[in-house]
Design a protein around this nucleic acid. Structure first.
Lengths: 376, 376
DNA sequence: GATCTCCCTGCAAACCTTTGCATTGAAGTA
DNA sequence: TACTTCAATGCAAAGGTTTGCAGGGAGATC
C-alpha cells in the first residue's frame, strides 16, 4: 500500500537512485527526467520515508523539545516559535512535557536521543552534571539554564528582577517579599540573587518565601504568608504565581495595589487580563525558541553525524560551538504596582505617581558570548 | 560512536539476532544468555534504533498530535493526558501546532504520516472530505469533529450549550447573544445549533455574532457589538473569548453580571481566576486525550501494518473499528451569570436567585456508540 | 575520424534491526 | 542405542533510502 521510491522509479522508467537524486540533489539530474519523475511522484502520492533516510544519513530531521509544563502559558510562545523556525528548515519538533519532574526529563532525553537530531531542554530541573552527561548522548541546547561548555539560551531575568525591585523601591516600598520558584530552577536562583542584591542596594528588606510550584496554586497558597509577613510589595517567580497571589490576596480582602503591590515575571498574555492588570518582567520567549532552534541546527550541520566509511573518518577533536546567548528582558508597568508607605520621602527623582502604560519593544538584539570547546 | 546491536552482540559473544530477541522476545532466549546480553547492553549504553526497527516492523511507536493552537489553554490538559497515556504504552507523542490554519493541518498530516503510527486530529479546521482522504494515508482519530466512518472523540457541547441557555433563561434572560467560534469548527456549529434550539424552546432571542477567532482578542473585539445588540446574556464559544469579552465589557463600563451575564465553554483553569469568576461549560479534555490515544492504539494493534511476505497477506477487507465516543459536559455555575430583567416573572420553578458554587464531578463514563466498517 | 570531456544514469553497498527458517545439541522416549 | 522433540541460537533476507563509483553516450576538439 505505501508507495515507495521503487514504485516511482518503475512508473517513470528510471533507476531508484535517479528518483532519490531528483529529491535530494536535483541539479544532478536532467531537467526532462526530473519533471517526469516529479510528475510520477506527485501522481502516486510518493513521500520519502524519513525513517529509511535517517538510517543512512544519520539525520532524522526531527528535534526534541522538552518542556517542564505545557500548561504553563509561558511555554506555548516558545514552542510555537521553535516549531515554526524548525519547519522552515524542514525539521519537525517533538514536544514532550515532564510535569516539572527531573526524572521524567532524563528518561525523555534517552527516549528521544535516537529519533531526533538534537534536543532543546527548556527550563530543566535536573542537575548540571546530569545534563552534561546527557549531552554526550545527543546534541543539546539548554534554555533557561547556564552551563559551561554547552550552548545555552538565557533570558536576563537578573536584570529584570533588579528593575522590578528598583521600580518598587522607587514607589516607596521598603518591606518586600519574593515568591521563589521551583527547586532546581536556574531562573529562580537568578531572580533571587539579583532581587536580594537590588533590595540591599535600595535599603529594602526582602523576605524569601518558597520554593513553590510555579503555578496559580503555588502563588495562591502563599497569600496568607505574604499578609503575615507584613510586606507591601511582592515579586513573584512568574506571572502564574503572581496571578494566584492576586486571587489569594483578594480572598483575604487585601487590596492590590493599594495595600500590596505585585510584580510577576514572563508577561504571559493573561497578565493583561487580570484585574488589576499585572506589572511584570517581559521575557522574550519567542525569540528564545527561535534562537535555540538556530543554535541546535547550526551545531547539527557542523557535526557530520554519520561516519560513512567507518573508522576512516574518525571524529576526533570535533569542534563544537557553544555560544551562549543572553536575551534581554524588560519591565512592563501596569496596574498591580502602586505607591508604598515611603512614597515621596526619599529618592525624589523616581516618580512615585501613578504608573502609566508602558509600551515595550521586541528586544531583538541578543548579547552573544561565543566560545569554542573541543569535544571529547 | 553510536552503539548498535552489533556491538552488543560482539561484546556478549552471541549473534545479533539473539540480542534482538533479548529485547523483543525474551522468552526465546536462554536466561543465562539473556542476563549476559542485558549486562553488556547496559554497559555499553545500547538503545535500539527506532528508525531501523520502524523500517522492518512498520511501527514507529510514535503518534502525532495535531492541535489548532497550543497557546489555547484548552489543549494542554488534552496533550498531557495523551502523552501520559501514550508513554504508558511505550509510545511517544509528536505535538504540532497549526495556528488554526487548515492548510497547515493538511501539510502536517502528510509530513507526519510516515513517521508515526497514527495521528490524533484535534479540533480540525479542514473539510470532512479532506479528512477522509487523509485517513487513507495514515490512521486517524478525530477529536471534536464527527465524521461517519472514522473514529471520533466528541464532547457533548450541544448538551452543554443547552444547559447554559436554560440556565440563563431560568435567570430571567430573554435577549441573548452567541459569540461564534472559528469557521470550520464542528464544536462551534454544534454549540450554535443547540443554543439556537434551546433559546427557541425557552422563548428567548439569540443573536449570533461571528465567526470569530477563538481567542481573548476575538472576544474582546465583540464587546462593542454585544452592547449594541442590547442583550443581557452572552454565551461564548470558549472561555478565552468569554474572558476577552469580560475585559471588553469592563472597558466599556458594562458590569458583569449585573448588566450582562457571560458564559464560556471549556472550564480552563483560568476561568476560576477572572473577576468575576466565569460560569462555564466544563469539557472533559483530559479524558478526551486519553480516550483518543486508546482508540488509536487499539486500531493500530488491529491492523498489522507491515505486509511481510508481500502479496500473500493482501490486506483486503480489513476491518477497522470506528467507535465514536461522546464525552459528557457539565455546566459550572460561578459568578459571571446573574438575574436578568425577567427574573422571577415566569418559570417560577427555576431559581433566579444567586448562583451557588457548583462542584462538578469528573464525567468518567463515556457514552459509546461503536460500529464496524469495512475499509477499502 | 579518433580521442577526450562531461553530463547523466545505473549499480550495489550500507544503515540497523527483525524474523522465518535452518541448524545444533541435549534431553527424553522406545 | 537409535530416534524424536524441543529449546536455543545462527543465518540471511528484507525494509526504503542515500551515495561513491563506474559506465554510457553525446558533443567538442584536434
Amino acid at each position: 500500500m505505501p508507495v515507495t521510491i521503487r514504485d516511482v522509479a518503475r512508473a517513470s522508467g528510471v533507476h531508484i537512485s535517479t528518483v532519490s537524486r531528483t529529491f535530494s540533489a536535483p541539479h544532478l539530474v536532467n531537467p526532462e527526467t526530473r519533471v517526469r519523475v516529479l510528475a510520477c511522484a506527485e501522481d502516486l502520492g510518493y513521500r520519502p520515508n524519513r525513517a529509511a533516510r535517517a538510517l543512512i544519513t544519520g539525520r532524522t530531521h526531527n528535534i526534541g523539545l522538552i518542556i517542564a509544563d505545557i500548561a504553563n502559558p509561558f511555554f506555548p510562545p516558545l514552542i510555537k516559535a521553535a516549531e515554526s523556525q524548525a519547519r522552515h528548515r524542514d525539521y519537525h519538533v517533538f514536544v514532550a512535557d515532564t510535569n516539572e519532574d527531573a526524572a521524567a526529563e532524563e528518561e525523555l532525553v534517552h527516549a528521544l536521543a535516537k529519533q531526533v537530531d538534537g534536543v532543546l531542554l527548556c527550563s530543566p530541573r535536573m542537575s548540571n552534571s546530569l545534563i552534561e552527561q546527557l549531552s554526550r548522548e545527543v546534541p543539546l541546547v539548554v534554555v533557561n539554564r547556564q552551563l559551561a561548555g554547552l550552548p545555552c539560551v538565557l533570558m536576563d531575568v537578573g536584570q529584570g528582577a533588579r528593575s522590578a525591585i528598583e521600580h518598587l523601591a522607587g514607589l516607596g516600598h521598603r518591606e518586600m517579599a519574593l515568591l521563589g520558584g521551583p527547586r532546581g530552577s536556574w531562573t529562580s536562583r537568578e531572580i533571587r540573587r539579583a532581587a536580594s542584591a537590588a533590595a540591599r542596594a535600595a535599603g529594602a528588606d526582602l523576605t524569601v518565601l518558597g520554593p513553590n510550584p510555579p503555578t496559580e496554586t503555588g502563588g495562591l497558597a502563599q497569600a496568607e504568608q505574604v499578609r503575615r509577613a507584613g510586606v507591601t510589595a511582592v515579586l513573584a517567580y512568574n506571572d502564574l504565581m503572581a496571578i494566584g497571589l492576586l486571587e489569594g490576596l483578594d480572598a483575604l480582602g487585601v487590596r492590590v495595589p493599594q495595600e500590596v503591590s505585585v510584580v510577576g515575571v514572563d508577561d504571559i498574555s493573561l497578565s493583561r487580563l487580570t484585574r488589576p492588570k499585572l506589572t511584570t518582567v517581559a521575557t522574550p520567549t519567542a525569540a528564545a525558541g527561535r534562537t535555540a532552534v538556530d543554535m541546535l541546527l547550526q551545531q547539527d550541520t557542523d557535526l557530520p553525524r554519520t561516519a560513512r566509511g567507518g573508522g576512516a573518518t574518525v571524529a576526533v577533536g570535533v569542534r563544537r560551538t557553544t555560544a551562549q546567548v543572553m536575551l534581554q528582558t524588560e519591565l512592563v508597568i501596569r496596574d498591580s504596582t502602586g505607591p508604598g508607605p515611603y512614597a515621596g520621602r526619599e529618592r525624589p527623582g523616581t516618580a512615585a505617581a501613578g504608573p502609566g502604560p508602558h509600551r515595550r519593544a521586541d528586544p531583538g538584539n541578543p548579547v552573544v558570548a561565543a566560545g569554542d570547546v573541543v569535544a571529547s
